[in-house]
C-alpha cells in the first residue's frame, strides 16, 4: 500500500454560497507530510474537509490518486481538533470502530485496537470512556483510531491545537514516530510555524486567495514567518 496523492486544482470552497477560499492550487505528493499554515479563517480546515470528501468544491477539481473526490472514503481519514471520539465507546471500542467499518472480525480488530493503543502509550486505558481521559489522552486515542484502519492519506486538522505545550510536544514526537512507519500521505494543518517546521516535509502557506508561499524541507523559521507577515489581510499573530 502506498500513500495517496492529493491535489486541488483552481479550487473554490465555501459554505452556503459564501466563499472561504478561491483559486487554490495545492498538491500533497504521495507519501509526503505537507504542513499547511495560515491564520484562522483562511480555509485550512475547509481544504481538509474537501480532501476528505465532506465538502464538495464550488469550482475546480479535488483529486485523490488522480480520481475526483466525490465523497468520504476510509482511504482518506480525518483527525479532528475537536473531541471526535464517540463518548459511549471505550478507548478500545473507539479504535475498533475504524476496523469494524472495514469489516474486520471481532477478535482480530480487538487485538489490533489493543496494539494501536499500546503504540500510542495507552495500553492501560483501553477500557476507559473518553470522559475518563485527559485531552492529550483523547487525542492519542483519536490518532490510534485514525491510523488503525490503515488509510492512504491522513488529514490532520490542528490535532494538537487544544493541548498544553508539554502534551503538545509529546504528541508531536509520537506523531513523527508513528508516521515514520506509515506509508500514508499526511496533510497537517496548523497555525503554529514551529509545529509546521517540525512535522512537515514541505510547507504551504494558505490565504483566502489560495497558496501564498511554499517552502521545502529545511526552510528557516524566519523565511516562513516573513511569508506569513507578507500576508497583510489579517491582524492575527501566527
Amino acid at each position: 500500500m502506498t500513500g495517496l496523492e492529493l491535489r486541488a486544482e483552481d479550487v473554490a470552497l465555501g459554505y452556503g454560497g459564501r466563499a472561504v477560499v478561491t483559486g487554490l492550487d495545492l498538491t500533497a505528493e504521495a507519501g509526503e507530510v505537507l504542513a499547511v499554515l495560515g491564520p484562522s479563517g483562511c480555509g485550512k480546515s475547509t481544504l481538509l474537509r474537501a480532501f476528505a470528501g465532506l465538502l464538495p468544491a464550488a469550482s475546480g477539481r479535488v483529486l485523490a490518486g488522480g480520481e475526483p473526490v466525490t465523497g468520504p472514503s476510509a482511504d482518506r481519514a480525518l483527525m479532528f481538533q475537536d473531541d471526535a471520539l464517540l463518548p459511549w465507546r471505550t478507548a478500545r471500542r473507539n479504535v475498533e470502530l475504524a476496523l469494524s467499518l472495514r469489516g474486520v472480525r471481532r477478535a482480530e480488530r480487538r487485538a489490533a485496537a489493543d496494539r494501536w493503543l499500546e503504540r500510542v502509550g495507552l495500553g492501560d486505558a483501553a477500557g476507559r470512556l473518553p470522559r475518563e481521559l485527559s485531552g492529550g489522552m483523547r487525542q492519542r486515542v483519536q490518532l490510534a483510531r485514525t491510523l488503525a484502519a490503515g488509510p492512504r492519506a491522513i488529514l490532520m486538522d490542528e490535532p494538537f491545537g487544544a493541548l498544553d505545550a508539554q502534551t503538545r510536544a509529546s504528541m508531536q514526537r509520537l506523531l513523527l514516530d508513528v508516521i515514520a512507519d506509515a506509508p500514508a500521505t499526511v496533510v497537517f494543518v496548523t497555525h503554529d510555524v514551529d509545529e509546521a517546521l517540525l512535522i512537515g516535509h514541505r510547507i504551504a502557506v494558505l490565504g483566502t486567495g489560495g497558496v501564498t508561499a511554499r517552502f521545502p524541507a529545511g526552510a528557516s523559521r524566519d523565511e516562513v514567518l516573513a511569508a506569513l507577515g507578507a500576508r497583510t489581510d489579517t491582524k492575527e499573530t501566527v
Binding site: 468520504p72 480525518l78 473531541d83 471526535a84 464517540l86 470502530l97 467499518l101 472495514r102 484502519a149
Partner: peptide, 13 residues
C-alpha cells in the same frame, strides 16, 4: 455534534 458523524463517515461509514 456534527464531528461524530464526520468522524465515522471519514472512517468509511
Amino acid at each position: 455534534p456534527v464531528v461524530w458523524e464526520d468522524a465515522v463517515r471519514t472512517l468509511g461509514g
